[in-house]
């Protein structure tokens, strides 16, 4: 069961792996997988959306967490 209403989702095929999201994530929930793309640790992600606002490619999105139950 998810704790937060939103979560970050990355379009892996368009991600350029620049690492901006890793730098801005307040929960250190993002890492770059072998220089290929950014991976979001869903356990840590609180869905704040800061990564999405800073992503220069605009490929990380704040989306509704479907597993979230009130």
């Amino acid at each position: 069961m998810a704790k937060y209403k939103y979560k970050a989702e990355n379009e892996k095929d368009r991600c350029v792996a620049c690492g901006v999201c890793v730098k801005v994530c307040p929960k250190s929930a993002i890492s770059i997988y072998k220089g290929c793309y950014a991976v979001i640790n869903e356990e840590e992600c609180v869905g704040c959306g800061i990564c999405g606002k800073n992503c220069p490619a605009g490929v990380i999105h704040k989306v509704e967490n479907k597993e979230y139950v009130k």
């Binding site: 350029v16 901006v20 220069p56």
Partner: peptide, 13 residues
């Protein structure tokens, strides 16, 4: 645009 928009298509990157 945003800082590091260059990185999106940086040839080295």
């Amino acid at each position: 645009y945003r800082p590091r928009t260059w990185c999106v298509f940086c040839p080295m990157g």
